[in-house]
Design a protein around this nucleic acid. Sequence first.
DNA 1: GTTGAGTCTGTAGTCGCTACAGGCTGTACC
DNA 2: GGTACAGCCTGTAGCGACTACAGACTCAAC
Lengths: 136, 136
Amino acid sequence: MPAKDAFAIGALSEETGVNIETIRYYERIGLLRKAARSAAGYRLYRPGDVARLCFVRRARDLGFSLEDVRRLLALADRESRSCEGAKKIAEAHLEEVRAKLVDLRQMERVLAATVKACGRGTVPDCPLLGSLGRLT
Amino acid sequence: MPAKDAFAIGALSEETGVNIETIRYYERIGLLRKAARSAAGYRLYRPGDVARLCFVRRARDLGFSLEDVRRLLALADRESRSCEGAKKIAEAHLEEVRAKLVDLRQMERVLAATVKACGRGTVPDCPLLGSLGRLT
DNA sequence: GTTGAGTCTGTAGTCGCTACAGGCTGTACC
DNA sequence: GGTACAGCCTGTAGCGACTACAGACTCAAC
């Protein structure tokens, strides 16, 4: 018999803001442990699962990959004496984010300039299409 | 018989910096027209194809989706009288880029603060893991 | 009893490539 | 002519991180 504080996947989804399909996906790939089941085969969750999934969600919001999240969860689970591991993961990710920012800012600059130059003239003269390259 | 300025896919890849597999992929999904073939079935390209693929590459570098690229190519092809269409596509894309920039900057801020706070103390106290959520 | 919402599994689709396997071709050298 | 080796071919499957079904079952309310 299920414990009385257990709830189904819909409630977990509601609580955490994580899509039901995504929760099942996380279980399938082993990011979340296999949930307990009711007699009818429904997944049953308990309050601790909300915390765990919120952790995943926040990490995802910060752009960590699922592989990173997996490692962070493992680190959070075992009470080892330092969080050096977590820091390394976060630092590496921060580097990636910063690299992406550089790329994206560059894109933004070029796009903004291009759009600004556009909107007058015909296609053969269109600065936007022209800046992408002349087709022969 | 192939024209004398024709070249194979490897040369096109070299010229444009686009991976061979990617070129074939673009052809498969109809982004590039089907290439002419040699007697032995090798794809044959001409200088105009370099220009076209460079156009695609630059658009991709600016973050346009392949669907956008397809539309931009179509607009560049027909010599219609205005480039309003191209401008609309670029403006919409610019909006997306800016939205992503906002997200990424937010990520960067939070991550940087978290990493900074981390690196002293044990896992139960780790500010990084703690900031993601306490697991029960 | 019946409706409707919730849940289940399994599979396939998305985007934009990338990486094979297994075979043919083209060229250079001996 | 033989042989090595690079280059090209098709077709399929994989990546990450979901998302969207189909078709079946269950649960709660009326």
